[in-house]
Design a protein around this nucleic acid. Structure first.
Length: 689
DNA sequence: CGGAATAAGCTTTTT
DNA sequence: GCTTATTCCG
């Protein structure tokens, strides 16, 4: 494995901006809106932060600046950077707490805040709850069952699919029939039923005063079309800065324009080459057409000097995008020293790939490159399964972003449901979930409870459930009593839940450990109410992120889906499964547009690397995930995006099969011996794989 | 009515 | 492997 050169590590200058960046930072808002097309690694975040600081310096109050970012992670980063710049401006010592950006967050988080303030004016319950995706799915599932759609000889799409269709419809504002024909052709004949189901779903949300993610945007949008509140909101923000404009959907784009008159005071930033959220209703047309939609048309500036990657990595990335269809033409360049050529490593199979990555990561660490400055990226979460196993076996600590989340596991949801129910007695979903944990309480009894408005006092449990019900009832009373304190309340729920956990799950021990983590996480929050609401909008991004707080003192490797890696950078990047079927993904290779998005995904992944980039291509796969193939393996070809013109920029080599490791083969369960550290196989089996 | 056992379909990416 | 529907038994 090649070694990194420590001298090759550069930081984008935080204070010195280049001419293009300076022009963007100091663009006079009075001269009209501004669009900055900023390529990967061109110091976009530094520029945005500097612009906020510049606005403040020119007399704008912080609370009149709205900064919409794509993820909560990006919002925090922005807050940190702006804070630092403002402190410098003040000449204040760096250890002082930086000033907070009061209006900085995702579209959804900002929407929730705006709606809370405006709720009384638009007939929305002030204490509305926000449904996370799991909640929304459950609710859709209940509506689906109630509507009787599940019966009969024809299958009806699953709750999750229904929700996806509904969400797409809301976010693109297009007719249902259109969407079905395009993306879910096998559901087309159920159009009428789906429409009926969505009605019922909407009604259920209304009676519960609950908003799902899409409703947050939709309600905000309606608000902006109502003169009085719209005027109030517009008056509140003098400047609107929008990051990642290429990943905005129709509703969000409309919101951006609605927030200002003709685009006055808008600064939008994005890169059409990094658009990777079409599946969520995003479309590049919003960035491509942005300037023209503003009155007067927005000024367009480009940032093309890359501060992040070596020319060797940039050349490969540029070559990849040279094959792409249209967009803003740009060619990234860098003044860094050439650096190592990117590497394309072929491996016999995924286990060999995993071993190769682990060895490369360790070798780099030996040369002084900390684990957290390296990352392993992949298209979808299961691709990392073999690697996770290998890292556990070798005791290499890691944190994984994306994929199945901690808060989506059944046991965590159970516990949270009890807390939510205590928090809001009319939270039907929470009650529905929590009540059925009591043995003897089935769907019929739970429905009876809900039909009675969820009122516990007047509910008669089935005789078999009497004792269990009394315990739950007492627990809820205790939670509402407020004498337990926080996180004592959670502790009480856990004590109550433990026997149920053991009754319901064979792997109760592991799940119990998760719940202990939940407890650790909870102590960082102020109280039950805050914990429950904050969790719906901002669940920790990684499975062991905040939950595994002790890990933060140590060094650990980053594993992340490409989507979750957006806006991040690492010195060394490994990209797994750069193979047809994985990248591009089978499911996404249907249309030319989808294929282009897969190409951009590869581009995003490659441009995360500062100094070293390795693409991996295993040749043989055990296809457990695909239907019809059973346990057989399949031979894969390198990704179709690796054309000869692209490969010119790579060094090719093949990774020998793992040396001493029959252990690495996923099909061999007999390797618990040989002095290797005990591996938590169950954790893996329970994981996203 | 409740619940265990069985059968069958379904699996990307995220706020 | 997961969820969901169905079947059968107490």
């Amino acid at each position: 494995m090649s070694t990194p050169r420590s001298s090759a590590i550069h930081r984008a200058p935080a204070l010195e901006l280049n001419a293009e960046q300076r022009a963007a930072v100091a663009h006079d808002p009075a001269a009209g809106p501004l669009l900055v097309v900023a390529g990967a690694g061109t110091g976009k975040t530094a520029m945005l932060a500097a612009r906020v600081a510049w606005l403040v310096r020119s007399g704008v109050e912080l609370r009149r600046i709205l900064l919409v970012t794509f993820s909560r992670r990006a919002a925090q980063e922005m807050e940190r950077r702006v804070g630092r710049l403002l402190l410098e401006d003040l000449g204040a010592p760096a250890h002082l707490p930086p000033p907070a950006l009061p209006w900085c967050g995702t579209f959804h988080a900002v929407a929730a805040r705006v709606l809370r303030e405006e709720a009384p004016f638009i007939g929305l319950a002030n204490g509305f709850t926000v449904l996370d995706r799991g909640d929304a799915e459950d609710l859709m599932g209940i509506a689906r069952q109630r509507a009787g759609l599940a019966e009969g000889d024809r299958r009806f799409p699953l709750a999750a699919t229904c929700l996806a269709i509904h969400s797409r419809q809301v976010n693109t504002q297009r007719p249902l029939a259109d969407l079905l024909a395009r993306a879910w052709p096998w559901c087309a004949e159920r159009e009428a039923d789906l429409a009926r189901l969505f009605e019922a779903y909407g009604a259920a949300k209304r009676t519960q005063h609950a908003l799902d993610y899409d409703d947050l945007l939709l309600a905000w949008w309606h608000l902006m079309r109502t003169p009085a509140p719209a005027a109030r909101i517009r008056a509140r923000f003098a400047h609107v800065l929008v990051d990642e404009l290429q990943d905005v959907n129709r509703l969000q784009a409309d919101l951006v324009h609605a927030l200002t008159a003709g685009g006055a005071g808008i600064t939008a930033v994005g890169d059409d080459a990094q658009a990777i959220y079409a599946f969520r209703g995003a479309s590049v047309e919003h960035i491509l057409g942005f300037a023209g939609r503003c009155k007067p048309p927005a000024r367009v500036l480009r940032l093309e000097r890359n501060y992040r990657s070596t020319p060797a990595i940039l050349a490969a990335s540029n070559a990849l995008m040279a094959d792409a269809a249209e967009g803003f033409a740009k060619q990234l360049w860098s003044r860094r020293a050439d650096g190592l050529r990117p590497r394309l490593a072929t491996a016999a199979d995924e286990a060999t790939q995993a071993a190769g990555v682990a060895e490369a990561v360790l070798a780099a660490r030996e040369t002084g490159l900390a684990l957290r400055r390296q990352a392993v990226l992949f298209r979808s979460a299961p691709h990392a399964a073999a690697l996770e196993y290998e890292l556990l076996r070798r005791r290499i600590p890691f944190v994984k972003y994306g994929g199945l989340r901690f808060f989506e596991s059944a046991h965590v949801k159970d516990v949270l449901a009890v807390l939510r129910w205590a928090d809001n007695p009319s939270a039907a979903l929470a009650a529905w979930r929590a009540a059925r944990l009591v043995p003897g309480m089935g769907p019929a009894a739970a429905r009876r409870l809900l039909d009675g408005g969820g009122e516990r006092a007047r509910f008669q449990p089935p005789r078999a459930a009497a004792a269990g019900w009394r315990a739950l009832d007492a627990l809820l009373d205790a939670l509402r009593g407020g004498a337990l304190g926080w996180p004592g309340e959670l502790q009480a729920v856990l004590d109550w839940y433990r026997p149920h956990l053991e009754r319901l799950h064979a792997d109760a021990r592991l799940r119990w450990a998760d719940l202990q983590q939940l407890l650790a996480l909870a102590s960082a929050h102020a109280g039950r109410e805050r914990f429950v609401t904050e969790l719906a909008l901002d669940p920790p991004a990684a499975s062991s992120d905040e939950a595994g707080a002790p890990l933060h003192d140590e060094d650990y490797l980053i594993l992340s889906t490409i989507h979750s890696a957006k806006g991040q950078e690492w010195s060394a990047v490994h990209l797994l499964n750069v193979v047809d079927g994985c990248l591009p993904a089978d499911l996404a290779a249907g249309s030319a547009a989808e294929l282009e998005e897969e190409r951009r995904l590869l581009y995003v992944a490659m441009t995360r690397a500062r100094d070293q980039l390795t693409l991996w291509a295993p040749q043989r796969f055990f296809v457990t995930q695909q239907r019809g193939w059973g346990d057989r393996h399949v031979y894969a070809l390198p990704s179709r995006f690796l054309t000869p013109a692209v490969l010119e920029h790579f060094d090719l080599d093949s990774c020998a099969p793992a040396t001493a490791a029959p252990a690495a083969a996923p099909a061999a369960p007999q390797d618990a011996e040989d002095g290797a550290p005990p591996v938590d196989l169950m954790a893996l089996l329970r994981g996203p794989a």
